[in-house]
């Protein structure tokens, strides 16, 4: 047990180290960008106002030597102070917390949906690798990978905005639903969630179905599958109990590795569907030259990825007992 505790602590330590490294990257970026760092921090708003610039210099200690600034920056950030947005005139951390929920809702729905549907498709395709369905899955995964996610989104917007208007194509809530009951507004959010989540999930359905097919084909050829069949188990028990669990390993690995890509995809999807998440916040921040917010979003997204990686690690150990205690 102490060994396990030690392993957990080590994992958390490494994750914390990564957070520090991300902050260091941010710091480097601010200071390596051309021009006055105060200007970078203030963005265009500060450029006009000398008093604000002076305040920023003093506030961020920009007159002090770099190492000292670095320590101050890390210290502030770890306390949750990611600076102030001069566009919104609010602390960046508040802005981000407002937008975090929608992004997590979008990303998790897309990811979990894609894992379930993609895996199921891959599993079914692996049952008969030469069948028509298996071929369809292969073609679908190629197409799904090659479609630019924002284009998929736009095509869906055209389809549901013009041809078949049954789905909301923008935003997260209907203005007419303001003041509606909890259930009604939750349903409203879910209704708005459908298209963005489908758009974002589609690429991953494509990838996971292909990966699941390959992984299942490999597992189905292994000796313990033969054992399970020799035991008298039916096709479905063999497939879903004995094969799938072992075939999940590469899927979980890829899901963990791709969480960053998923967030990148979310930026584009949020833009297409005006979803009020971190991605649209980042884009607005870019348009408003609001660097503290932009860097805050980057930091926060990186933290999300780090947390996702920790969860991946946990699920590894759950799926494969051989990894426990390692």
């Amino acid at each position: 047990m102490t060994r396990n505790l030690w392993l957990v602590l080590r994992r958390l330590g490494l994750a914390f180290g990564l957070v520090l490294a991300v902050l260091a990257v941010n710091f480097t970026l601010i200071h390596s960008a051309p021009g006055d760092p105060a200007m970078v921090i203030a963005g265009e708003m500060g450029g006009a106002d000398e008093a604000a610039m002076a305040a920023i210099r003093k506030n961020y200690g920009l007159d002090k030597p770099l190492p000292e600034q670095f320590v101050t920056y890390i210290g502030r950030s770890l306390h949750g102070d990611l600076g102030t947005s001069y566009t919104y005139n609010r602390p960046v951390s508040e802005l981000i917390l407002d937008r975090l929920g929608p992004t997590i809702l979008l990303v998790l729905t897309a990811l979990l949906g894609a894992i379930c549907i993609g895996t199921l498709m891959g599993v079914l395709a692996s049952r008969r690798p030469d069948s028509l369905f298996s071929g369809v899955v292969t073609v679908f995964s190629l197409i799904g990978y090659a479609m630019p996610v924002f284009w998929t989104g736009i095509l869906l917007v055209i389809l549901f905005g013009k041809v078949w208007p049954i789905m909301p194509i923008a935003g997260m809530r209907d203005v007419r639903m303001m003041g509606a009951g909890t259930w009604a507004s939750m349903l409203d959010v879910l209704h708005h969630l459908v298209l963005p989540a489908v758009t974002l999930g589609l690429i991953y359905v494509a990838q996971y179905s292909r990966l699941a097919r390959a992984s299942m084909l490999e597992v189905l050829g292994s000796d313990y599958i033969r054992t399970a069949r020799a035991k008298g188990l039916g096709v479905w028990a063999v497939t879903f109990k004995h094969a799938l669990r072992n075939a999940m390993m590469p899927l979980v690995t890829i899901a963990g590795l791709q969480f960053g890509n998923l967030i990148s995809g979310a930026v584009l999807v949020e833009t297409v569907f005006s979803w009020p998440g971190l991605g649209t916040l980042a884009l607005d921040a870019i348009l408003g030259r609001d660097y503290p917010t932009l860097l805050g979003v980057l930091t926060f997204s990186a933290i999300l990825v780090i947390v996702a990686n920790l969860l991946t690690d946990v699920s590894y150990r759950w799926i494969d007992p051989r990894l426990r205690g390692r």
Partner: peptide, 18 residues
């Protein structure tokens, strides 16, 4: 470190700063 930085966001920051 580079794996945890969401690629598109990071590229967005780079392109915006420069």
């Amino acid at each position: 470190l580079f794996q945890v930085l969401p690629a598109l966001l990071f590229a967005m920051v780079l392109v915006t700063l420069f």
